[in-house]
Design a binder for these strands. Sequence first.
DNA 1: ACTTGCATTAAAGTTAACTTGAAGGCCTAT
DNA 2: ATAGGCCTTCAAGTTAACTTTAATGCAAGT
Lengths: 137, 137
Amino acid sequence: MTYSIGEFATIVGVNKSALRYYEMEGLITPLRNENNLRVFTDSDIGWVQFLLHLKASGMSMTELKNYTEWRAMGDKTIPERLDLLEQRKRLVELEIQALQQNLDILNRKIVFYKDQFEGNKYEFVLYPKDKEEIAKS
Amino acid sequence: MTYSIGEFATIVGVNKSALRYYEMEGLITPLRNENNLRVFTDSDIGWVQFLLHLKASGMSMTELKNYTEWRAMGDKTIPERLDLLEQRKRLVELEIQALQQNLDILNRKIVFYKDQFEGNKYEFVLYPKDKEEIAKS
DNA sequence: ACTTGCATTAAAGTTAACTTGAAGGCCTAT
DNA sequence: ATAGGCCTTCAAGTTAACTTTAATGCAAGT
């Protein structure tokens, strides 16, 4: 099965212009048909999806380019690719930790504000300003 | 205790120019001394550090500005601040989840490459290309 | 033949959040 | 009094990763 750039863009969820940009940067190398239109294949889907995961894990365009070049050079560059992946793994682990700490701080502030709100409500219930209201109730 | 912009920048770990930018955006309102120099106080430290946590949790300048304005308006805006914090909390939780999934994918690829590397080593040991080597050994 | 809808390239524009640069002022030590 | 080191404002520059625009072309349907 093959796909036009528009079809492929829909499948992988990436803007057509972004795909052209990725080609320009060497991340993908779609074939061309007799009219010079890009032709994408099923195996491109897997590759782009993997690239998107690397990207979502924080890799820069430069790193993605390196990885792609190494991949094109064959198995002898597996150590380089492993290094890059392991480095990224460590960075993602650190980022997750940092986010969790920030989440803690958000939670503490949320609890603080809620306590304050509950405190207000409670005070309102126990000590309404107009004491006549209590007498009437 | 009070601090010049340079001292304060060192304390909170933020570029002086960024602090000026934050003031321009209304996130901080340092006093000025008789020579028009900014004067920061200890309470500014806590506030900026909190802002930095919000920022590190992914809040945009616009959101930080909203939060800051609400804070300046007093307790009646606590619900708005709570909404913003809880929304951010949900987003951070989602981002942590996404990062963990990407970490899984990194790990799978790392294992895959390592297996391949081990596989090569193993094959080399078991089936050296030159069978004469075995005879000699 | 003409419109519609897809594609092409190359170049310029966008965005956020700063950062840098230029031109200058005030204070202190030599 | 001059040099160094801090500060000031305002404007312009930076960066990555696209996105948009302009000018064009091919091909299928009416």
